[in-house]
Design a protein around this nucleic acid. Structure first.
Lengths: 180, 180
DNA sequence: TGGATTTAGTTGGACGTCGTAGTATCGTAC
DNA sequence: GTACGATACTACGACGTCCAACTAAATCCA
């Protein structure tokens, strides 16, 4: 399913060795962290897309569907979707196009702002979102088992990393109110 | 440079809240970890590509160049490159095509196996690789500063996560010999 | 030795992401 | 009341990733 087969040694550990041998010791830990994140992302995305395949969804489209299903009336302007999912407006257009083609979402006029467009969950979209969420929870999210550490500790580290990587939203969280 | 602007609250923390409110508590930590990794990857990749922009490189092409520059004679069969970089053969073909067009790499015949093709570093490719590595080390890798934790601890957690995500190469590392 | 299988790369298509540019509409300020 | 700047979305193109299908060459084995 994925890329190339097993290798017998760890390419990331090997890269780290190279970095240190070349006198780039001060950057070695950062390089390792970055490379690890890239690799983990690749593996997780593959697992997710596999779990989502029976529903004809990708992770990008699933996220959009899930976001809509959390709202009162299953509808949100495309711009707000992009802000919440942290993706480019063009990516939202693209995802909504495909979801609409599948009949899971509909575009509707915004009641007061004629520039804006509401992506609205169809009944089928709502049903698919629910089933896909169950599948993902069971096959991927709940199945993420650490060899020895606990996941909450990892989450704390990931939050640090996220701030270090420059996430503007991650740092403010303090006394911020609920969504909007 | 990136996607949509700041939001005032953290979408990942909000997603976690949603998961718990819906009774998916056992999957909430996993969901948060997965979502965090996706977001961090997005931010890091943007920072990297920005640092690499002056050299006309992307991260994918940089990795290939760096890998070649670590070998004795700056050459490796495409298949081996894919295995080391953990990407699909088609992605290697694509990257080598572009690097070759830029004059940073050349395709040469493998001395003994006529199926295989060696990607070979040109002198210019070697020079660009060195400069790009310095830029990346300085602007991204060494600049990755954690608010309070230390990066090596994060790296240990990332390694756990990587194994949990199913990296076959990460777990074997034990008594494995140096590369090949 | 000759056919079957595996391995190496390429090609073409599907997706997702982003940046740039263009159109419509809203808001505001003069 | 109108002109100008900000905002919402779409269109198009560049990249990267993967899969499936295909050719060529090496290997296995009967």
């Amino acid at each position: 399913m994925a890329a190339n087969g097993t290798l017998g040694f760890d390419p990331i550990a090997e890269a780290r060795r190279q970095w240190e041998d070349h006198g780039w010791g001060t950057a070695a830990a950062g390089m390792e962290a970055v490379t690890s994140v890239m690799r983990i992302q690749q593996l997780l995305l593959a697992a997710i897309d596999e779990a989502l395949e029976p529903f004809g969804l990708t992770f990008a489209r699933f996220e959009l569907l899930a976001l809509l299903s959390f709202t009162r009336d299953g509808a949100l302007p495309l711009g707000k979707i992009g802000a919440r999912l942290q993706v480019h407006p063009a990516s939202v257009t693209n995802a909504v196009d495909r979801l609409e083609r599948e009949g899971l979402v509909e575009r509707r006029a915004h009641p007061t702002d004629r520039r804006a467009i509401l992506a609205t969950l169809t009944p089928e979209g709502r049903a698919v979102a629910a089933k896909a969420t169950d599948a993902l929870n069971e096959q991927v999210f709940a199945a993420l088992e650490l060899p020895d550490g606990d996941l909450e500790a990892v989450n704390r580290d990931l939050r640090s990393l996220r701030v270090a990587a420059g996430d503007p939203d991650a740092s403010g969280e303090a006394l911020a109110s609920r969504p909007a």
